Amino acid sequence: MGQNRSVAELLRTEMDKLTPTERKIARVLLANYPVAGLETIAQLAARVEVSGPTVLRLVGKLGFDSYTAFQAALRGELEARLQSPLVRREAASEAAGTDFLAGFVRRQSELMQQTAANVSAAEFDGAVALLADPKRRIWLLGGRLTEPLAAYLAHHLKVVRSQVTQLRALPASWADHLVDMDKHDVLVVFDIRRYWQDAQRMAEMAAQRKVQVVLFTDQWLSPVSRCAKYTLAAHTAGPAGWDANTPLLMLIDALIAAVNTRHWSDIHDRLQELEQMRAALGEGGG
């Protein structure tokens, strides 16, 4: 298995190389990830209505020499999903040398490179197209540590398009917005380990209303991925026990840049008018 790649990433990136029968298994695994992969071979084969040897062939294509090794990887991911920063810090080894900043930057660079290598062009381009579509309303939701990321993306989108709303991280207030959502809307959710059940419930209810869900998550995949149209997963396992938001921010900046570059003709006039208004209002600063 590729270094630092989750089984979910392997399934998503290898999907086009699989046979139609193997893709059926992959979709079932992703739809109930990682629990479906912890079933026995017989149980998983019966669920997908394929043979046991077909399951083993898929596992082999993912780089595992046995179903036992495949399940061990999934159990490791399940444990990683639930780890607190305290546990991660105690398990982490000290970085070599005394130049902490240089080591930290190297690790961030590695995480960003791993992120870029494992986000498919189809997922990224699909998210860009949805967020740039002026006919769609955009709603954004972030959690305790990712709410600033949702706000950052919301601020940028508000500059280049209309109908952008950031939801407060208060589940009791969501119904007031959910009741107005329909197939013309996009819900952008930020959800990293240890995942937010309220966000999952909100995304599922939105999806039931035909809302297109775009998910920003980590390599272990938030349960929101089960109902997401597009999933952008970042490698976030940073040093000192805290997951890093830098790779997620890189994805956000790349998405913003792509929206501006690919849809500049639609954005130009709006920006020009906006700048004139800011000048008239005496706005200064970024």
Rank of each mutant, 00 (worst) to 15 (best):
A122H: 04
Q163W: 06
I138K: 11
R168S: 14
L140S: 10
L167D: 07
L153R: 00
N118M: 03
V119N: 02
L157N: 12
E147T: 04
D125L: 08
A151E: 15
L140Q: 07
T165R: 13
F124L: 11
D125W: 00
G126R: 00
A169M: 13
K158R: 15
A151F: 06
N118R: 09
A154R: 04
A121S: 14
A150T: 07
G142N: 07
L157K: 06
L153Q: 03
A122L: 02
A121R: 12
R137T: 08
R107I: 14
V128M: 05
Q114Y: 06
R168L: 11
Y152S: 10
T165M: 04
R107A: 05
R144D: 12
Q113R: 10
R144T: 14
I138E: 04
D125A: 14
I138R: 09
A129C: 01
L153T: 05
S162G: 04
L153E: 00
R107T: 13
V159N: 08
R107E: 15
A117H: 04
R137Y: 02
V128R: 11
K135C: 04
L145H: 06
R161V: 10
E147L: 05
L170C: 13
A116M: 07
E110T: 11
L145G: 08
V159D: 09
L131F: 07
R136D: 13
L149N: 03
T165V: 12
N118E: 05
E123H: 03
R161A: 05
L170S: 15
V159T: 10
V164D: 02
K135Y: 05
V159P: 00
F124T: 06
S109A: 14
L153C: 04
M112D: 15
A132N: 13
P134A: 02
E110V: 08
N118D: 08
S120N: 00
R168V: 06
A129V: 00
L170F: 15
S120D: 04
F124H: 10
A129D: 12
T146P: 06
D125I: 07
L111D: 01
L130V: 07
H155F: 13
T165S: 10
L153Y: 03
G126H: 02
A122P: 00
D133A: 03
V159G: 08
K135S: 15
R107G: 01
A116V: 10
L111S: 01
G126S: 04
A154Q: 12
R137G: 15
L145C: 00
A169P: 06
N118C: 05
T146M: 04
Q113W: 02
E147Q: 09
L111V: 03
H156F: 02
E110P: 05
H155K: 15
E123G: 02
K135M: 05
Q113N: 08
A121N: 11
T115M: 03
A116I: 07
H155C: 13
L149V: 01
L145F: 03
